[in-house]
């Protein structure tokens, strides 16, 4: 089969994205080359379960402006063009707030005094490693940094090609999640059958529909709540890909950082069938 990139996303945090992503990687890597990209860069945790041997690390930098106060005349054109309030002119000179900067370079271009240049700022690092046959690539945002998207893009761009690439996404529906799901062939939305799970699932569904990325739903801890998530998926004609039962044995394995496959061996068949199902759904959505 051709290569397939699957985003594992959710609206709500803590629904089991990483559990599903790492378990899916383990199941599929028996027969295929699998990469797992941990794009939840604010709190990457797939390595806890996959325990990769790290082979290489690299830092990721973004350009941010620096102002030569001798040349700056406080004209305010940088301030005007910045859509993120990252540069402001006050008392006759421009002041930079690097953490708000989206590295567009607009201020550098508009400055009539050539007073603004760019310097590279470290925002995080990427670790490359293997866990058995699985290539594991982990992005980790430097503490205190707010710009996750450039690091997420670097993780996705720098990973080696594989038959199946699994992207463990950040929760929510804001820029980091959108950056992580962007360009993926399919998104699996992991949810739980609770009011919060349903509420945030709706947000994620709306987001993916706007992005025109085909998707399906996996319900985790399936018998712990009520029927509303199932009913919602039926009404919205969203494919329900799998239901993972609520299980004390799975929770115990998870709490130790172990694979949940030993606690729930039947997942091998359920998850092993996902790529074919996803390929079918991806084709039918085109």
């Amino acid at each position: 089969m051709s290569s397939l990139t699957i985003a594992i996303a959710s609206g709500k945090g803590g629904t089991g994205k990483t559990t599903l992503a790492t378990t899916l990687a383990q199941v599929l890597s028996d027969k295929r080359a699998v990469s797992l990209l941990d794009c939840d860069v604010e709190e990457p945790n797939a390595h806890i379960f996959l325990k990769p041997v790290i082979e290489r690390r690299e830092t990721v930098e973004v350009p941010v402006p620096q102002v030569d106060e001798q040349l700056c005349n406080g004209c305010g054109q940088c301030d005007e063009i910045c859509q993120f309030n990252a540069i402001v002119t006050v008392s006759g000179t421009a002041m930079v707030f690097e953490q708000l900067c989206h590295s567009c370079g607009g201020c550098v271009r508009v400055c009539p005094q050539q007073a603004i240049s760019e310097r590279q700022k470290n925002i995080g690092q990427i670790e490359y490693g293997h866990s058995a046959a699985i290539q594991v690539v982990t992005g980790t945002l430097t503490i205190g940094e707010a710009m996750a998207p450039p690091l997420i893009r670097a993780v996705k761009d720098n990973a080696a090609a594989a038959d199946i690439t699994i992207v463990d996404c950040p929760p929510g529906t804001s820029c980091p999640m959108i950056t992580a799901v962007h360009g993926c062939d399919f998104a699996v939305l992991v949810t739980e059958p609770t009011p919060f799970g349903l509420h945030d699932l709706r947000l994620a569904v709306d987001t993916l529909r706007q992005l025109e990325i085909p998707f399906g739903v996996v319900i985790n801890r399936a018998d712990s709540g009520d029927e509303r998530v199932c009913a919602y998926c039926r009404t919205e004609k969203i494919p329900l890909l799998a239901q993972i039962p609520h299980s004390r044995a799975v929770a115990a394995a998870y709490s130790r950082g172990d694979s949940i496959l030993d606690a729930m061996p039947q997942l091998r068949d359920t998850l092993g069938a996902l790529p074919e199902e996803i390929t079918r759904l991806t084709r039918s959505s085109q």
Binding site: A86, V90, F97
Partner: peptide, 9 residues
């Protein structure tokens, strides 16, 4: 973002 910065300006 940056409401405080702009308010200060």
């Amino acid at each position: 973002q940056g409401a405080g910065i702009q308010a200060a300006k």
